[in-house]
Simulated scan of single mutants.
Amino acid sequence: MKIDLKKLTASQHASIPFSETIDLREETLYGVKPFQSPVQMSGEVSGESGILRLKGTIKTIYSTACARCLKPLQVLLTAEVDTVLSDDPDAEEEDDLFVLTGDSVDPADVMVPALILQVQMTYLCKEDCKGLCPHCGADRNEVDCDCESKQIDPRFAALRALLDSGEDERN
Rank of each mutant, 00 (worst) to 15 (best):
R140P: 03
L24D: 03
D103T: 12
A91I: 11
Q118P: 04
C66Q: 03
F156I: 02
E44C: 07
V45G: 04
D146V: 00
I116L: 08
F98N: 01
A138L: 07
T28R: 10
R160G: 06
G131N: 04
R140I: 01
D168Q: 09
D103K: 13
L132M: 03
T60M: 06
A14N: 03
M41H: 15
V45Q: 01
L100K: 10
V112N: 06
R140F: 00
D95H: 13
A161G: 06
A161I: 07
A79T: 05
R53Q: 02
I16Y: 05
E167V: 05
L24S: 07
R170P: 03
V75G: 02
D144G: 10
N171T: 12
S11T: 14
N171W: 11
K150H: 10
I61N: 10
E44P: 02
D168I: 10
Q74I: 09
S19P: 14
R155C: 03
E167Y: 07
K71F: 12
G56M: 10
P17K: 11
K55R: 13
A79P: 00
V143Q: 08
D109E: 11
C133G: 00
Q12M: 12
D23V: 04
G102R: 05
G47S: 01
K150R: 07
K59F: 08
K55A: 04
C145A: 02
L54I: 02
I152V: 01
L52M: 03
L77V: 06
Q36L: 03
P113D: 00
I16C: 01
C125A: 00
A79S: 01
R160I: 09
R140W: 00
I61V: 12
L100H: 09
V84C: 05
T78G: 09
T9M: 14
S49F: 15
L70W: 14
T57W: 15
G166K: 13
K130N: 02
G56H: 13
D164L: 03
D106H: 11
A114K: 04
T83K: 11
A91M: 13
Q12E: 12
R25A: 14
L52G: 01
I152W: 08
C136P: 09
G47L: 01
C125E: 01
D96A: 13
S165D: 08
N171R: 09
R155V: 06
M111T: 09
R25W: 14
T101S: 13
L159M: 00
L73N: 05
L124G: 00
Q120L: 01
K59Y: 10
L115G: 05
D164E: 04
F35N: 06
D88C: 05
Y30I: 10
G50A: 03
D82N: 07
S37V: 14
S15V: 02
D23E: 03
H135K: 12
I61H: 11
